[in-house]
Design a binder for these strands. Structure first.
Lengths: 267, 267
DNA sequence: TCGATCTCCTTACGCCCTACGGTATCGTCA
DNA sequence: TGACGATACCGTAGGGCGTAAGGAGATCGA
């Protein structure tokens, strides 16, 4: 459901994201000792979202339950759910590598960046549901972008082209990851495996639209060209391999395009 | 929040999608005359979702209000919200052109397809929130896919490459449209214009992270290379033009890549 | 005319987020 | 030492949401 990030108080979110000033002023305020910390809440919330495999499964109640407090206790530390999501979003990006692997050509650097990012999205699919329109502007996400720019710096692109390439790459990885994650989640949530689901649909389609192959000849041909299962292969594994192949092939196409663009950018 | 489509009863959804059998059996059943139709409900639901610019704004209650009935009355015609979304999703795809424009080369055909699709997503941003993992498999969406395949048939790609190219193109268009739609929606929902929002964030960033430019030199340079506003241009228009340029440039990169792949596919 | 059957509504349950006001706790200063 | 007042935390409640259950009324075939 495309959650809008950055919707809460900007000052609150940004302060939480970039080193908290109040954490440094040594003086403790009067009153009872805090039983929680923002860090603990964020960690718990990430764990909840990971398990639910969806931002929709994240509720203040579930987070509070995991921490052994009431949902209202969280509001002492975090202004609201929107700001919590902002911080979760950035924090989890700290997992991604940011260092350069020296001496590699830019193609393999970008490929490594893309597959790291895709794996990351599959570990934390809820990240894909945070809107990218008004970025959270946190340090860890920024580092990921910087890593891509570093990898691409070897390709020699003009600024305009570079912007387009960056967004293409992001959209490509996010799209592929989104599809893969949603497929997994659909199987988990509904309890129906992909093959069963497709089987049911295809049977129904044959009954309800017997003229399918005539109306959509190219789609039909593309679907039937799917490589058949090797005899003893687990269908789920085969599907995984198939999508990996599509990812690699799509990325290769994109990289070819970047190379061509770099050439015409006159470098 | 990535809504899972195809979650309801497959038979129900598919029957609603592919010509309703019961509509043809002439015999009216006893009981009061139906005051609504599935079509009217779907139309109202699409209007609601368009206005809310988000699938989250779509509720059975809102749809019912627009039709002047109670929310429970809808359940006579539609099994549930999931199936309603399935039907909305496919129905709205009927807007898109499906005919081929004869005599054009495949590059301009694909470009036209992509920009039509992007405009469509911007008119109906909620479509982007319906999961693509278990496709609805309705006739109108299928026609859109078939149109792309027809446009690409001139490029001479092997089946494997074709699959990768199709998914790259879809992901690219969806990603670009998603960002654009969410930017618009964020401005509408929060009442804060994009420039104001960015201004606030940048100011905060300067205060909280004065070392930003040192930590992220490439990001800083890319951001500062943005073309400045022409004196009397509306900032919103300038932003629109900027994203259009990025879209066109990204698509061009992708098409270059397709061309290269077609070459190495040996056609 | 008389069921049978269908449409549509009211009610209710169980989720969600969070505003508000009350209470328990503890550092600080007189 | 003792009281003050800031702070942490919770209970309640209000307004969302989807939809199960069951009842009221309309309309058909027999």
């Amino acid at each position: 459901m495309g959650i809008i990030a950055g919707q809460g108080d900007p000052t609150a979110s940004m302060t939480l994201l970039w080193g908290r000033a109040e954490a440094r002023s040594g003086r403790r305020a009067p009153g009872p000792k805090p039983g929680l910390t923002v860090d603990a809440i964020v960690e718990a919330a990430i764990a909840v979202a990971d398990e639910a495999a969806s931002a929709a499964g994240l509720s203040m109640r579930t987070v509070a339950e995991r921490l052994g407090c009431s949902s209202m206790a969280l509001y002492t530390y975090v202004p609201g759910k929107a700001e919590l999501l902002d911080v979760m979003y950035d924090r989890v990006h700290a997992e991604l590598p940011t260092g350069r692997s020296p001496g590699e050509d830019w193609r393999s650097e970008v490929t490594a960046w893309a597959s790291d990012l895709k794996a990351f999205y599959l570990r934390h699919p809820w990240v894909l549901q945070v809107s990218y329109a008004r970025p959270v502007l946190g340090p860890h996400e920024q580092a990921v972008l910087e890593a891509l720019l570093r990898a691409l710096s070897g390709a020699g692109l003009r600024a305009g082209t570079l912007r387009a390439v960056v967004s293409s790459l992001l959209h490509f990885v996010q799209g592929a990851a989104r599809t893969a994650a949603e497929t997994r989640r659909a199987a988990a949530v509904t309890g129906v495996s992909d093959q069963d689901w497709w089987g049911t649909r295809v049977t129904l389609l044959n009954e309800l639209a017997p003229d399918f192959a005539d109306r959509f000849p190219l789609s039909t041909r593309l679907a039937s060209s799917q490589s058949p299962l090797a005899g003893d292969e687990d269908p789920a594994d085969a599907w995984e391999r198939e999508t990996d192949d599509v990812f690699a092939a799509g990325l290769a196409v994109l990289l070819d395009g970047i190379e061509a663009a770099a050439g015409s950018d006159g470098c």
